[in-house]
Amino acid sequence: MYGWIWRHLPGNVWVRTLISIVLIVGVVFLLFQYVFPWAEPLLPFNDVTVDGAAPAGHAAATALKGNVA
């Protein structure tokens, strides 16, 4: 994949390197700006409120742990 991209970039080695860096920075920007903020709420450490809105699977698992605590 990366080899294919490299072969299809125009110019000599330096131009290709420059374009590669720009591409990498662009991808990281897209990830930080759009992809990660979207993916982050899917992970658990965002739930800090008591509203009983935990997923069913969670509730079942925690009921057991609750006995220990």
Binding site: P44, F45, N46, D47, V48, T49, V50, A54, A61, T62
Partner: peptide, 15 residues
């Protein structure tokens, strides 16, 4: 005040 517990989890809450 409420937050989650354990630190990186969401199974419980600390009050």
């Amino acid at each position: 005040l409420t937050t989650c517990d354990p630190e990186w989890g969401s199974s419980h809450r600390l009050i």
